[in-house]
Design a protein around this nucleic acid. Structure first.
Lengths: 223, 223, 223, 223
DNA sequence: CATGAATGAGAGTTCATTCAT
DNA sequence: AATGAATGAACTCTCATTCAT
């Protein structure tokens, strides 16, 4: 829980972002004080307010940026592809890789919605709904064309989202599992869950997703 | 987010438990004030301290009881059964039903570990580890005897746990899905994920799990 | 400007009221910190919040009570009296005596309207308007019946109100001037300003006003 | 209470003065932040410090200039005139006109003495005392020569000063009352209060005072 | 001339907790 | 069993002010 004082190498705004990300993810929004943020960013608590509005603004920006990135990646992986299987594979991989590579952002999005005021929350929920619609469409079309089979597609969608998002809670880049393997493995699980033919998992495509996700997240803080 | 003042029908200790459960689940431990608890329980904040130790004690007790119940149910469903498939089915169902029926407790366990002091956290983590060992054993034995197939059993275990636990975040008893159907559906997904033969899902057994879970949780607060 | 810590003889709520009165009058609302109030009341700053809402609530209550007392006294001195001269004399005396005996409350009302939020301000302004209407009626009727003469009655009303209220800024009960003399003197000035016959000032009536004002203000803090 | 950002037409120093005047009068010294001033003046808060010393210096300068102008006008209206009646008429008119034409400055002088540090306050109080001495002399001489009658000349002086100064709180140049009429009216009230012969009010002289006051205040900010 | 960056001190308010009754 | 009173510490946020650029 000890957070070392940030070296003053990066611009202050970045250091604040990074500190917020780390602390909100580790201790929660309400568990993180403005002084914790200041110390972790290497500034006085008063100086924080040159770069941010309120503490909630800081949280909101983090959440909206994270959702925007998931949305961008999701749209890119889905657009123009008529095959529900490869679209779902792409969404699973984007989701898994984003959560594996950016567990802080994604954990904050998943946990701290309730800390937002109603108006702010609504704006993030709208993004989340748009994102989940990509999943819904892929699964429903797959079921309609019988490449997927599920007795309750809506439930399966939620189950898969939870499953893939859970990666943020345990994946370590220092572990034995390479990213592409992870993405492939989750795709297999998802295809199994939807009774799709397992042979359809395309390892090469999965490798390309890693590039896509990295590109979309750009220079974003990685832990 | 509005919590109506509890009717003074139940004993005070129960009202406090219930208030804590509701509020910790809805707003988080740090987001819930002692005065919120008092109001929701229909007592003065000073009176709370007749029934609980500190706010953290209250949280710890909730978490340990919840884990103890999961452990009890898990052991009962597993003990004496040599078949990895039916053991895993039982674990999936216990997990899903517990999370569906007791989303408050399970959400608190899943979210608020970080709010505990190190010593308290360790005692809950120990319970969680014991519980996850039941899953590990079933999956590993199933892979060894080739009734399951997974390229990374440890990853699959984590993925399934996240997936089943996610139920707490969305299941509504007022929705279209009956509990047993839900349990069966998740078992199918899990078997699919592990490439087990789908025909092995035993609907009647799933129905019995609902009784088991209800019994283990006893009179516990249900939402 | 040094305010000695209050002896703990009076109930806390009274001590807070008294402290607020003294400090708001001496240093202004914005010039008085919550910690100043606490020290002057002999409590910790946290304890203040057992007895009051916000700092502004405290101010608002003081102002509304003061205006309510002026209104009560004003109505009592005016009701049922058809003679504009004695009504004006009564109003002048109530105003002067109230300001002389309760300079803190009246100074706060006169100075700190601007510190109130719009809604709160409106509620005090409404009281003030009702009070000034008593003056307006007396002066206008007096001019109509030609016992008063003024080329601009509205201006004269404002001028007299300012003049009488100014007493709060300099009158000292330890000075040479007795209260009744003060009240009579201001009545004479007012009658002069309105060109009324000076002989009409009733010293005995003025003496009775002192009793009335004391009664209306009751146990209110006097400095 | 909304203060529009000043057009950058005037020199910065003037814009700051004007902003301070407006805001100190409207919200009080303690109610006005350095950032409010900066915004109203159209500068950054750091830039303010090129033109002023501390916030208190700014206040002090405003107050001393205002008092200096009152003093100048008072002296000019009094010097060489042996008649207490015309001297008092002149003082009343200077006071009323100054407060009517420059309500911001005069309100600040009247309200914010308490916001000054002891040393600064003393320097303004000295000016005020010198100014009030002009009034004292006129009234006392008038009483001695029996052109005035008052049972308590000191009280009457204070009463008249409060009354005339009150003009700043309500006079509007857009109202029906012309300046000279206002000055004449107050002179009549004052003469009435002092039981002087009303016929002595010199309307032509009053008109000249308007010119005098305008000249003394020169280009000073007018509202 | 003007400002962005920075800060120690302090603002009003709430925190979890204790204790005498 | 229950609470009103009380508080030190902490909260988020703003204050007036400085200084390098």
């Amino acid at each position: 829980m000890t957070v070392t004082k940030a070296a003053k190498s990066a611009p202050a705004a970045d250091r604040i972002r990074r500190a917020a990300l780390t602390l909100f993810a580790a201790k929660g929004f309400h568990g993180t004080g403005i002084r914790d943020l200041a110390e972790a960013a290497g500034l006085s608590s008063a100086s924080l307010y040159h770069y941010m509005g309120t503490k909630e603004d800081l949280l909101l920006r983090i959440m909206r940026e994270c959702m925007a990135r998931l949305l961008t990646a999701g749209h890119r992986v889905v657009t123009g592809d008529p095959d529900p299987r490869s679209r779902l594979a792409g969404l699973v991989q984007v989701h898994v890789l984003s959560h594996a590579l950016h567990p802080l952002e994604t954990a904050v999005v998943d946990h701290e919605l309730r800390a937002l005021s109603p108006a702010a929350r609504a704006s993030v929920v709208a993004q989340r709904d748009e994102y989940e619609d990509l999943w819904r469409a892929a699964i429903e079309e797959g079921c309609a064309s019988e490449v997927f089979r599920s007795s309750a597609p809506a439930v399966t969608r939620l189950a898969l989202l939870e499953m893939c998002g859970g990666v943020a809670r345990w994946y370590s880049p220092r572990g034995r599992l390479a990213l592409t393997e992870l993405a492939v493995h989750y795709t297999e699980i998802a295809f199994g869950a939807l009774r799709a033919e397992p042979s359809t998992v395309d390892t090469e495509a999965a490798r390309l997703r890693t590039g896509l996700v990295s590109e979309v997240w750009g220079g974003a803080v990685r832990r």
